[in-house]
């Protein structure tokens, strides 16, 4: 939605959140969506098969047409899978602790591309079976070399109990889903400033997710934040959006804003507490190692 232009020194100062409540950049902690020209080209490359299918129609070869259309659909589907696979990999890489995607999409995309090429060269181009097969294999191999395979292993589970890490990954997935629903609901409010407040709440929450991922021991103390509070925020946002889009109720807006501010502060505080604990862990670690060095007479300046 459009936002009226105006800064601190404009004649009509916008009545946005004051500096005290303003939080950091809402894009913090969010990665840019990667756009890969290669994937787009893969959507385009099979298009001649459509024309070939029309040619078969003209020649009266129903079977050939069906085969060519199947090859076309297979290749397009492979490109879709590849795109989703790349997205899933980006999500995987953005996190400190992550489970491997359930479906190895890039691998399936490579196989389907091979099958599509095989179908197109055998039924469309009328090559022999063996050359078609070899083309298919080469296409699959080139696909794997070019785009790689999916992350197959869990990440960031070293050093911590695997069971704990799994629990963290699950809890963060759920919390992330709640957050997305909240953001979707906030779009319906139709007030750019409130929407911005919800976004900054979201980035505070995401900061906390990352902190929990880095140290799964914090999960117990943050569970309330990840589920109860976020669910409450989502429900409140949905109800407020329903009400506010109809009535523009100023009281409700004030209450809602107060709620958002409270939530954001408590998320930030929780994160800070967790980081402080990490800090004391670090201090202990450093202390122990330095003592050891000192004992062995290796410490500089001694």
């Amino acid at each position: 939605m459009a936002q009226r232009y105006g800064g601190d020194h404009s004649p009509k100062k916008p009545t946005g959140p004051s500096d005290a409540t303003k939080t950091a950049n809402k894009f913090r902690g969010r990665t840019a969506h990667q756009s890969d020209i290669r994937v787009k080209l893969l959507f385009l490359a099979p298009v001649p098969l459509l024309f070939a299918a029309i040619g078969e129609l003209r020649a009266g070869d129903a079977f050939g047409m069906a085969a060519e259309l199947t090859a076309f659909i297979t290749l397009i589907f492979a490109a879709y899978l590849l795109r989703d696979g790349i997205k899933a990999q980006a999500a995987f890489e953005a996190r400190a602790i992550a489970r491997a995607p359930k479906i190895p999409r890039k691998l399936f995309a490579a196989e389907l591309t091979g099958v599509g090429v095989m179908l197109a060269s055998f039924f469309g181009w009328h090559l022999d079976l063996i050359p078609s097969f070899i083309f298919g294999i080469i296409a699959s191999a080139a696909h794997i070399v070019s785009f790689g395979l999916d992350p197959m292993r869990k990440k960031g589970m070293g050093g911590v109990n695997e069971f704990d890490a799994e629990r963290v990954a699950k809890a963060v997935d759920k919390a992330e889903a709640l957050l997305r629903e909240t953001l979707t609901a906030a779009k319906r409010i139709g007030n750019r400033q409130l929407e911005g407040r919800v976004e900054s709440l979201a980035s505070a929450a995401r900061d906390m997710f990352r902190a929990v991922e880095e140290d799964p021991r914090d999960l117990t103390s943050s569970r309330k934040f990840l589920s109860v509070y976020l669910r409450g925020a989502r429900d409140a946002t949905i109800k407020f959006a329903d009400l506010y889009s109809k009535t523009r109720d100023a009281d409700a807006q004030r209450d809602y804003e107060a709620l958002l501010a409270d939530l954001e502060t408590s998320f930030a505080n929780q994160r800070e507490t967790m980081l402080l604990e990490n800090r004391s862990d670090l201090d202990v670690e450093i202390e122990v190692l330095r003592d050891r060095l000192k004992q062995e007479g290796l410490r500089a300046g001694d």
Partner: peptide, 30 residues
């Protein structure tokens, strides 16, 4: 992540195979 030259080469091989087999299907038997 940046695309390496090897990945680009493999990609062009893939693209050429797909495009040729698709155009081959238009042209019909060799």
């Amino acid at each position: 992540m940046r695309t390496t030259p090897l990945q680009w080469t493999a990609f062009f091989v893939l693209l050429v195979i797909i495009v040729f087999s698709a155009f081959g299907a238009i042209a019909g038997p060799v």
